[in-house]
């Protein structure tokens, strides 16, 4: 079993006003040929959920790859709203309840795209990138040619702010991963590689991953430039 991964392509989004990707071609908000999400699907998603679905469509247009979606916190605005309703003795909205589960975004994506490959939603207490890479390797070992790994964080309600680490703005990054015998971006065990990239005990958020992917692109451009000289 190969224990190395390469990134075939990646896309990102953040609610920050400036492009989150060094190269705008990676920024899902900068793409002019983006097909809009069906309105009845879009209404159930927050900003990060919409961006996640757009990124998934872009990375896997044929709906042929397994997808692993990681989010440390999920849509906490929804769950906080439901808890508040319960506390006030009000009945819960079935629609909001259905969207408060961790695999809700992937479920909607699968319905909209008729996606019938494996889907997995996970949270890993800050080790989401490590978990995404591990799960991706598992699917690649089963023989899938590529796996889509997407990592998102939604807006954090005010009630939770300061109580957990969270990127300041909603953000999403998605990567199309394949096995790589020679040009690996990360090798197992990933914890070691990730501590080299993000520092010891680092818990990279989607924004940190986007910054790393921008750096990787810069390095590759530099290497290509040197090779041409």
């Amino acid at each position: 079993m190969s224990s190395s991964l390469q990134i075939e392509s990646w896309y990102a989004w953040s609610a920050a006003p400036v492009s989150c990707a060094g190269d705008e071609r990676h920024d899902i908000a900068s793409l002019s040929d983006l097909e809009p999400l069906p309105p009845l699907l879009r209404r159930r998603l927050d900003q990060a959920g919409r961006a996640t679905c757009q990124i998934l469509r872009r990375l896997d247009p044929e709906a042929a790859c397994p997808i692993v979606h990681a989010s440390r916190h999920g849509n906490t605005s929804l769950t906080w709203g439901l808890l508040t309703e319960l506390n006030d003795g009000n009945p819960l909205s079935p629609g909001r309840f259905s969207m408060s589960v961790h695999n809700a975004v992937l479920g909607l994506h699968a319905i909209a795209r008729d996606h019938r490959q494996p889907l997995q939603a996970l949270a890993a207490c800050g080790d989401e990138l490590d978990a995404l890479f591990d799960e991706a390797l598992g699917y690649l070992a089963e023989g899938y040619p590529a796996v889509i790994a997407v990592f998102s964080e939604s807006a954090l309600p005010e009630a939770y702010q300061g109580l957990t680490s969270h990127p300041a703005a909603p953000c999403v990054v998605g990567m199309r991963l394949a096995a790589s015998p020679d040009q690996s971006i990360a090798d197992r065990p990933f914890a070691h590689t990730l501590s080299l990239l993000f520092g010891d005990n680092a818990q990279p958020t989607p924004l940190d991953v986007i910054a790393w992917l921008n750096d990787l692109d810069d390095q590759q451009r530099l290497e290509r430039g040197n090779a041409c000289q």
Binding site: L40, S93, S98
Partner: peptide, 15 residues
């Protein structure tokens, strides 16, 4: 084009 979850939501709305 509504779905079954919308039906539950309308039921709650009527209540």
């Amino acid at each position: 084009g509504l779905d079954s979850i919308d039906a539950l939501e309308i039921g709650l709305m009527l209540q």
